Amino acid sequence: MTTGMPAGPATWVLLEGASDVAAVRALAERAGLGLDGSGVRLVDMGGATNVRRHLLDAARAPASPRVLGMCDIKEATFFVRALRDLGCAVSCAQALPGWGFQLCDRDLEDELMRALGPGRVRAVLEDLGLTDRFATFTQQPAWAARDFHEQARRFAGVASGRKELMAQALALALHPRSLPAPLRGLLDDLSGDGPTFSSLGATERTGS
């Protein structure tokens, strides 16, 4: 996981947290993108509220990096405001993918679990040796009556390091053709030219 900003030419991928970094890194490496060798840095922002600071770092960098990212739709306003503050004419949250920032409906774990379905999520829990702990968790009064999807989402976040572990495993359990739209869009951006961001602002992709 990378939290600091590189000084040289690179692509910076701004992500909300460590679990997003774990999933994107696993999928990018599986796709043969070679992040480290190509100067790509996955940045754990520690929350969407910090996006403006990271965009300012990019704008001030000696060699302007290409900036991509991904966020939850409920946090998209932070990205829109930050980009507008730096001179980017972002019309609304739904326009963010055209600027290189993909949108998750709820969060990345939700996207991954919906794409896999309950049976394959259970298989991931079993592969990780978490089946018994999950069963104990679902017996708690507050969660016993919830559906499996909500139980699994909450279970991922109740122990230190589990969210990253599960995000990586869930991502790798998906066939490349079955990736959720935000992850597919981000990987496509990483493998292509994508938008640019510098002290002069950002350039929206045409035709997006």
Results as ranks from 00 to 15, higher is better:
residue 115 A to K: 02
residue 183 L to T: 13
residue 170 L to W: 04
residue 190 L to G: 04
residue 48 A to V: 09
residue 109 E to Y: 11
residue 159 A to Y: 06
residue 36 D to Q: 15
residue 66 R to M: 02
residue 184 R to E: 05
residue 79 F to Y: 12
residue 186 L to T: 02
residue 144 A to C: 02
residue 110 D to F: 05
residue 148 F to P: 05
residue 177 R to H: 15
residue 33 L to R: 01
residue 160 S to G: 13
residue 196 T to S: 13
residue 161 G to T: 02
residue 144 A to F: 04
residue 125 L to A: 02
residue 76 A to P: 06
residue 19 S to C: 14
residue 69 G to P: 05
residue 135 A to R: 04
residue 120 R to W: 08
residue 124 V to D: 13
residue 32 G to Y: 10
residue 4 G to Q: 07
residue 31 A to L: 07
residue 100 G to Q: 14
residue 3 T to H: 06
residue 13 V to R: 00
residue 161 G to K: 11
residue 141 P to M: 00
residue 96 L to V: 10
residue 146 R to W: 06
residue 17 G to P: 11
residue 191 S to M: 14
residue 190 L to H: 13
residue 199 S to C: 15
residue 162 R to H: 07
residue 133 R to P: 05
residue 51 V to P: 14
residue 114 R to A: 11
residue 45 M to N: 03
residue 160 S to F: 06
residue 12 W to Y: 00
residue 75 E to V: 10
residue 15 L to V: 09
residue 170 L to M: 05
residue 114 R to D: 10
residue 204 E to C: 14
residue 12 W to D: 00
residue 189 D to M: 09
residue 80 V to H: 07
residue 152 A to R: 13
residue 143 W to D: 05
residue 66 R to F: 03
residue 37 G to S: 06
residue 49 T to G: 15
residue 111 E to L: 01
residue 176 P to I: 15
residue 73 I to P: 06
residue 154 R to W: 08
residue 43 V to R: 00
residue 203 T to G: 14
residue 169 A to P: 11
residue 106 R to Y: 03
residue 122 R to H: 09
residue 72 D to L: 08
residue 198 S to M: 04
residue 33 L to S: 03
residue 14 L to Y: 02
residue 195 P to K: 12
residue 170 L to K: 03
residue 134 F to I: 04
residue 149 H to F: 10
residue 75 E to L: 11
residue 39 G to F: 01
residue 72 D to H: 08
residue 72 D to M: 05
residue 4 G to E: 06
residue 16 E to H: 12
residue 26 A to P: 10
residue 37 G to R: 09
residue 89 A to T: 05
residue 58 A to L: 04
residue 86 L to F: 11
residue 177 R to M: 12
residue 138 T to Q: 12
residue 21 V to W: 01
residue 148 F to R: 03
residue 67 V to I: 03
residue 52 R to C: 13
residue 193 D to C: 09
residue 50 N to L: 10
residue 52 R to T: 15
residue 183 L to G: 08
residue 64 S to L: 08
residue 198 S to C: 04
residue 85 D to Y: 06
residue 5 M to T: 00
residue 178 S to G: 11
residue 25 R to Y: 14
residue 60 R to M: 08
residue 95 A to I: 12
residue 205 R to G: 15
residue 85 D to P: 07
residue 39 G to L: 00
residue 62 P to T: 12
residue 62 P to E: 04
residue 100 G to R: 05
residue 108 L to P: 15
residue 21 V to I: 02
residue 135 A to L: 05
residue 134 F to S: 05
residue 208 S to N: 14
residue 90 V to H: 09
residue 104 C to A: 05
residue 13 V to Q: 01
residue 170 L to I: 03
residue 9 P to D: 01
residue 108 L to C: 14
residue 98 G to H: 06
residue 152 A to T: 06
residue 107 D to E: 14
residue 120 R to M: 02
residue 44 D to H: 01
residue 31 A to S: 07
residue 143 W to M: 13
residue 160 S to M: 10
residue 133 R to V: 07
residue 119 G to P: 03
residue 76 A to D: 08
residue 18 A to M: 09
residue 208 S to R: 13
residue 147 D to C: 12
residue 193 D to W: 13
residue 144 A to G: 00
residue 53 R to A: 14
residue 199 S to H: 14
residue 204 E to M: 08
residue 181 A to S: 03
residue 187 L to G: 04
residue 201 G to A: 06
residue 104 C to V: 07
residue 196 T to G: 10
residue 2 T to H: 02
residue 194 G to C: 12
residue 23 A to E: 10
residue 172 L to G: 05
